[in-house]
Nucleic acid binder design. Structure first.
Lengths: 325, 325
DNA sequence: CTGAAAGCGCTTACAG
DNA sequence: CTGAAAGCGCTTACAG
């Protein structure tokens, strides 16, 4: 049978109130009484029921996290950062991915109403931003981990320096003597895509820009198309590593040598980047730090610190490998 | 203010008992009464508090999952399989990684006593098996996702055909005309390492066996060492893809061509496997299915279906790519 | 078919 | 410094 606060109270010959006070280390408990209660707690192996505590206190000491997918290359790092931070604070992490359409979004929002968690971290799944904003308006603390650069105003979020990241890629290529870049972007409606491109072309104007889809296939076909067109280019800036990997493959298939003929720079620095042939120079995103920072912001908010209304900006960093030395 | 069952009852002019019966679709409620209650529920946007329900019912409709790391290449797939299954059943998923030593293991076990979840899925973090077994003995439903082949007897678990996987790699190399394989294993104390090796050598005896660590560096150094020794080999079976990637790199550095000089086969089929140079032939593990299966077993157990006492075995499948055509 | 009441295991004014 | 009692929002015998 479960050990309850009543058992502890009886055994220690005090009231449940006093036991509660000891557990929650309130002042105003006699030192020897407190010691006796603690001894009984240890002896009985008592642990407060999280459900009961949550009900009585009106909070669950649990944080929710909503993500579009768990298999994206950088998601593991973000999650790890979140879990580490949340666990260290004594909170639990409830994980959701609503990838079954409207139905599952609804299921998710009902968990919110059920008060299953006190606050929410979100990497936005496609078409859920309105829902998220709605929940936030209704009082749910939310922090957005913004991988797309399209957070609404005044919304607590962590972002990275996409513009500067693009610029750093351009500076690196320029310093390496490249002047005719091909840019393979991601989907055009993402803010990060616009920012990375803007940062890049400010430093190094690009005659060739192909809109990709952040997929290997789109990276590959961008190269195939541009080569078929007979375009003249000496370098590639792919806006994520996955499409950069596709580009590397297509270049090799076309008989172009990387980096001698064509230098290639990616974006993200996912684990795969060090295993491509040749290893990929890329603009690294601090994925783990993004998770940690977002979690800290949310926990802070739950603890009473007002969330910053400006997005928190984390730095990207160029990682130089063989594809663009 | 939160809408409670009392609000619904008042508005629908019935007792809380009746509302509860409607929510939980018990029989014995007048059709028109039920309809009226449902209408009020919809109108008020009432959602039962998960904490209160859990407390009253003694269960949380939440499953816990304990993993050693969230950044391992195949963990995302396992997690996705788990989350999909658990969500579809209307359960929540509480995620734990106790990678801060004994301290965090303790924190985790106290969550168990707190009844934060009804059952546990675990990919065993180093040195926690005893704790897990202890929790299971005390009545916590547990299903082990066994990536190492070292589950105790009579423990509900899902495993893969490591022995057959090793054998399939050997058969493939043999069919390709290879006869002098080098095997790069993982840590010797893992059951899966022994099984994969045993399956392999039953088909194709290996003169050269190097104990690795499932890391890129260990794969690389295994090749460097064996080449330095002047060993004669025409193929490599690396027991995971990460070390196979290291092997590919070292072979290239040593001027050996893959697959012409040396054929290479890995194990796992992580996403990276299709991006190595050349793309890696590998023994695929059904990682997502492992997660799904384990989750289904656990949910079934929570629902009353007795858990199978034999491990559930999932099939590995050879994926042929260019490194060993 | 329906409801009053007790109970799940805590916390928190309130009173002393 | 301590305790009795009410309350958090549900479910579940029990009685009708």
């Amino acid at each position: 049978m479960r050990v309850t606060i009543a058992d502890v109270a009886r055994e220690a010959r005090v009231s449940k109130t006093t036991v509660s006070r000891v557990i929650n280390t309130k002042s105003d408990v006699d030192r020897t009484t407190a010691a006796r209660v603690r001894a009984v707690i240890a002896e009985l192996g008592y642990v407060p029921s999280s459900g009961a505590v949550g009900l009585a206190r009106g909070s669950s000491r649990t944080v929710g996290m909503l993500v579009p997918s768990l298999t994206w290359p950088w998601m593991g790092e973000v999650l790890q950062g979140v879990v580490d931070t949340v666990e260290a604070a004594g909170y639990g992490l409830l994980l959701f991915t609503c990838n079954r359409g409207a139905d599952s979004v609804e299921r998710f929002t009902s968990q919110v109403s059920a008060r299953a968690f006190d606050g929410l971290l979100v990497v936005e799944p496609e078409n859920t931003l309105d829902t998220i904003i709605g929940l936030h308006r209704k009082g749910l603390p939310v922090v957005l981990i913004d991988d797309r650069g399209q957070h609404p105003e005044d919304f607590p979020s962590v972002v990275t320096t996409n513009h500067e990241g693009g610029a750093s890629a351009a500076r690196h290529l320029l310093a390496g003597g490249r002047s005719k870049p091909l840019v393979i972007t991601g989907p055009a409606h993402f803010g990060c895509v616009r920012d990375r491109l803007a940062g890049f072309v400010e430093v190094l104007p690009a005659e060739h820009v192909v809109v990709g889809e952040f997929t290997e296939a789109s990276g590959r076909s961008a190269i195939e198309r541009i080569i078929a067109e007979g375009a003249d280019f000496d370098s590639v800036f792919a806006q994520n590593d996955v499409s950069a990997a596709g580009a590397l493959r297509a270049l090799r298939a076309a008989g172009r040598t990387v980096p001698d003929d064509i230098a290639v720079v990616g974006f993200d620095d996912i684990p795969m980047a060090r295993h491509t042939e040749p290893p990929l120079t890329t603009v690294g995103q601090p994925t783990r730090a993004m998770g940690e920072t977002a979690a800290r912001m949310l926990l802070g908010h739950l603890g009473g610190t007002p969330a910053p209304d400006e997005p928190v900006v984390l730095r990207t960093d160029l990682v130089v490998r063989e594809s663009a030395p």
